[in-house]
Amino acid sequence: MSAGAPVWITRARPGALATAERVRGLGFEALVDPLLAVEALQAELDLSHVTALAFTSANGVEAFARLSDARGVPVFAVGRATAKAAQAEGFASVSSADGDVEDLCELIAGGASGPVLWAGAREPAGDLVGMLRGRGVMAKGVAVYETLERAPSDETLARLKAPATALLHSPRAARALAAILRERPASALRFLCLSEAVAAPLRGIAEPGSVTFAPRPDESALLELLNS
Score class of each variant (00 low, 15 high):
Ala92Gln: 12
Arg150Pro: 09
Gly90Leu: 04
Ala143Glu: 14
Gly90Val: 02
Ala139Phe: 08
Cys105Lys: 10
Asp33Asn: 03
Gly99Met: 06
Ser93Arg: 10
Ser57Ile: 05
Ser153Tyr: 13
Thr147Lys: 01
Gly114Phe: 07
Ser96Asn: 07
Ala85Gly: 01
Ala54Glu: 02
Ala158Trp: 00
Lys84Tyr: 15
Ala37Glu: 15
Ala43Lys: 10
Gly99Cys: 00
Pro34His: 02
Gly60Val: 07
Glu62Ile: 06
Leu45Ser: 06
Ala52Glu: 03
Ala88Thr: 10
Leu148Asp: 06
Ala58Trp: 03
Ala162Met: 05
Arg66Thr: 12
Asp100Gln: 04
Gly126Val: 09
Ala52Cys: 12
Ala85Phe: 01
Phe28Ala: 07
Arg71Asp: 03
Thr147Phe: 01
Leu157Cys: 08
Ala166Gln: 03
Val144Ile: 05
Gly114Glu: 03
Gly111Ala: 12
Ile108His: 02
Asn59Lys: 10
Arg159Leu: 09
Glu149Asn: 15
Gln42Cys: 14
Leu128Tyr: 03
Asp100Ser: 04
Gly60Asn: 13
Ser96Ala: 11
Met131Trp: 11
Leu104Met: 11
Ser93Asn: 09
Thr156Asn: 08
Gly99Lys: 03
Arg135Val: 10
Gln87Gly: 03
Ala97Ser: 05
Ser153Val: 00
Lys84Glu: 11
Leu148Tyr: 12
Gly136His: 10
Ala121Pro: 05
Gly111Asn: 13
Gly72Val: 13
Gly130Glu: 03
Leu132Gln: 06
Leu107His: 02
Leu160Phe: 07
Ala112Asp: 02
Ala139Asn: 08
Ala164Gly: 07
Ile108Cys: 01
Asp127Tyr: 05
Leu35Ala: 12
Trp118Val: 14
Gly134Ser: 10
Ala30Tyr: 04
Thr56Leu: 01
Pro152Gln: 12
Ala77Arg: 00
Ala83Asp: 01
Ala162Ser: 14
Leu107Thr: 01
Leu67His: 01
Pro115Glu: 06
